[in-house]
Amino acid sequence: MKLRSTAFGVTGAALAILFLFPLLWSAWASTRTPTGFGLENYRRLFTSDNGIRVEHVVNSLTVCALTVGGTLLVATLGGYAFGRFTFPGKNALFLLTLAILMVPYATILIALYVLLEWIGLQDSLLGLSLVLIMFQLPFSIFMMRNAFEAIPKELEESALIDGCTSFGALTRIMLHAVRPGLITVGLFAFLTSWSEFFAPLILLNSTSKFTVMLAVVNMRTASFGAIDYAALEAGVTFMAVPCLLLFLVLQRSYVRGFMSGALRG
C-alpha cells in the first residue's frame, strides 16, 4: 500500500509538471530579454507594426461584453421557458437548439459570412457577437433549463400567490436560485469569446476591427520574415492570464455546474 501510494505520488507529480510546464515556460519566455528579464517583449507586442493596439483590446472587450450579456439574457429567459412552462413547439425548439452541437460551426460560417453581409452586419463586432451567442446556446440553454427545473416548485408558487407576475418571480426569486448555473454559462461565454479564433478570422475583415486573438495570430501569419517568438509568447501570456485567473477563482462553481448540469443527459 505504501509503495502504491508513493508510485501514485511520483506519477502524479511528474504528469502535473508536464501539464503545467508549457504555461510556466510561456510566462518565463515572455519576460526573457537578451540581457536578463524585463518587459521588453511586451513593449514590442504593443508597439510593433503587426502587434496589438488599444483598439484591439477595446474590440475584444466589446465582443466579450456583448457575448456574455447576450448569452446570459437569452439563456436565462430560454431556460426559464423550457424548465418552467409548456408551450407549443417546446420540444421541437429545444431539440433544434441542441442540434447546433451536431452541426459543426466551421461548416456554416461561410453561409453566416454571406448572411451577415445581407443584414448589414459584415465586419461588425455586433454580428460576430450574435454568432458567438448562437454557438453558446446549446450548452447554455441545457444548463439553465436544468437549473430552473431543480428549483422547488413551492418557491415559485409562493411568489406567484404573493401577487408577483412570472417575470417578477424570475427576477426577484428564481435568478438568485440559479446563480451557479449563470456563473458557469457566463464563464464559458467569456472564455470562448475572448479566445475564439476561427469565427473572427472569417467574420472580421479590417485590421481596425480585429480582436486581440486575431492580432496576436497575425503577428505569426503576416510575418514573411523571421517570427518574433518572444513577443508572440508575450501575446500568449496576455491572452491566457485573464482566462486562467478567472477559471481559478470560479473553479468550484464551474466544475460543479459542469458536472451537475451539462452532462446529466
Partner: peptide, 8 residues
C-alpha cells in the same frame, strides 16, 4: 490548459 484558448 483547457482554460487557455486553443489558438493561444
Amino acid at each position: 490548459p483547457a482554460a487557455v484558448g486553443f489558438a493561444s
